[in-house]
Amino acid sequence: MSKIEEALVKARSGNKREIVPSHGNEKKLTRNNISLMYSDKLVDESELAARKIIYPDMTDQSVLNQFRSLRTKLAQRSKGENAIILVYSTIPGGGASYTAINLAASFALDKEKTSLLINCDFTTKPEYESLIHNNKYGLVDYLSREIDIENIIYPVGINGLRIIPSNTESGLFGEYFTTQKFEELIIELASRYKDRYIILDAPSMHDEANVKLLSDFARHALLVAPSGKNNENEIIKAKNIVSPDKFMGVVINNIPKKLF
């Protein structure tokens, strides 16, 4: 059990801690008014296809089904609890961001659930961040400045899906994940909605230290290994940096389509 979960249990059972009331662009939602989240202006399907994000009517149904199946497996593991899932890859550009956004999207496809994707990889700007209009503040801004939590959570035009971008131009980042503020942020986000899956888009194995740090906040970890880029030993090495009880499994990504 992660320290976040311990904190959550504490927070929920004792109710000693006042949860900061939300304001700004995120409306406070409960199980009953979850439909309010669907009031956003929806993004066009062609735009999703261009960004390689799944949607129900997509041409290649096999991709959709693969993500649905993954979602189901993860939901079974987390036993209905809203879980914090870490997604990291073996190499930079290995498809962690792609898997993370689509996993988030597949959770959002389920009418009962919502998902929140947090981009914790400050080195690259993933494709999905371009979905955000007037992207002003991101995670780095929140951690380094005094910004309200509501200001960094953006709707992206997909029902039930929210994103916290990293929003850093420099690519330079300090030890943000060791700060108290980051921990509090995660607790805050996790305790807000019971049916919200929080997905952390983590850096790849080249930033092993941060993957390790982030895995402390997660309940599950998912390793993305791009097809044909790693050997077994590299995958095992990547698996071993996360504690075994959190490790869910390996997703082999970007497998070329079979010709026959």
Binding site: Y98, S227, N230, I235, M248, V251, I252, I255
Partner: peptide
């Protein structure tokens, strides 16, 4: 090199949770 789950030997205890084709 690992291309899909068939390239993983059984004794490595690596659980392949998903095999995603190119989108």
């Amino acid at each position: 090199r690992v291309f899909d789950a068939t390239d993983i030997r059984d004794d490595t205890n690596l659980l392949i949770i998903g095999e995603h084709t190119h989108y």
